[in-house]
Computed example of a mutant assay.
Amino acid sequence: MYEGTVVYKEAENNKYKFLVLQNISKEDLANGDSEKFIELAQNQEAAYYYLDKEHYESVEIGQKVRITTDLNQNESNPPIRTALKIDKINK
């Protein structure tokens, strides 16, 4: 299980993913772009998550989430995992 903030979303060829960072300031979230988020991901727990369209559309950038994943991941940096369950955290 992993907790973090959704900082970037991408939909391409009916595949949906988002990038989740464990720690991000409000300033970085407001002013960042995908390259900045990937740079920030190098120094902390972070991952891309594949998910279904319904969950993709229900989660907004800036939302804190708790994600349960399968044990497989692509060995990229940040890694890519498949989300099995996503819970929104209201903080």
Rank of each mutant, 00 (worst) to 15 (best):
L21A: 05
K53N: 09
I61A: 00
L19V: 08
V20C: 09
H55E: 08
K36S: 12
H55I: 00
N31I: 02
D33I: 00
Q22G: 09
E45R: 12
K36C: 02
S25R: 11
H55C: 01
F37T: 00
E27V: 05
Y49S: 10
Q44R: 12
Y49W: 11
D33Q: 12
Y50L: 11
S25V: 06
T68W: 06
I61K: 03
G62W: 05
F37Y: 10
Q22E: 15
G32I: 04
D52F: 08
Q63D: 15
Y49T: 03
S58A: 14
Y56H: 03
D28M: 02
A47Q: 12
F37Q: 02
L51F: 02
G32Q: 11
N31W: 06
E35A: 15
N23P: 06
Y48A: 03
Q63T: 02
L29F: 09
S25P: 07
K26I: 00
H55R: 00
N31A: 09
Y48M: 08
T68N: 08
V65G: 07
Q42M: 14
A46S: 13
K53E: 15
V65T: 08
I24S: 06
E54F: 11
L40R: 05
L21S: 07
E54R: 14
N23C: 01
D52S: 13
Y50P: 10
S34W: 00
E54I: 12
I38V: 12
I67R: 05
Q63H: 10
I38G: 02
Q22T: 11
N43H: 09
N31V: 01
S58E: 14
I38T: 10
V20M: 13
E35Q: 14
A30D: 13
D33A: 03
N31S: 04
D52C: 14
S58C: 09
N31C: 00
S34C: 08
G62F: 06
E57R: 15
E57D: 15
K36D: 12
Y56M: 02
K26A: 10
S58M: 04
V59L: 02
V65I: 10
G62C: 10
E35Y: 15
L29D: 13
Q44V: 06
E45I: 01
K53W: 01
T68S: 13
E54V: 10
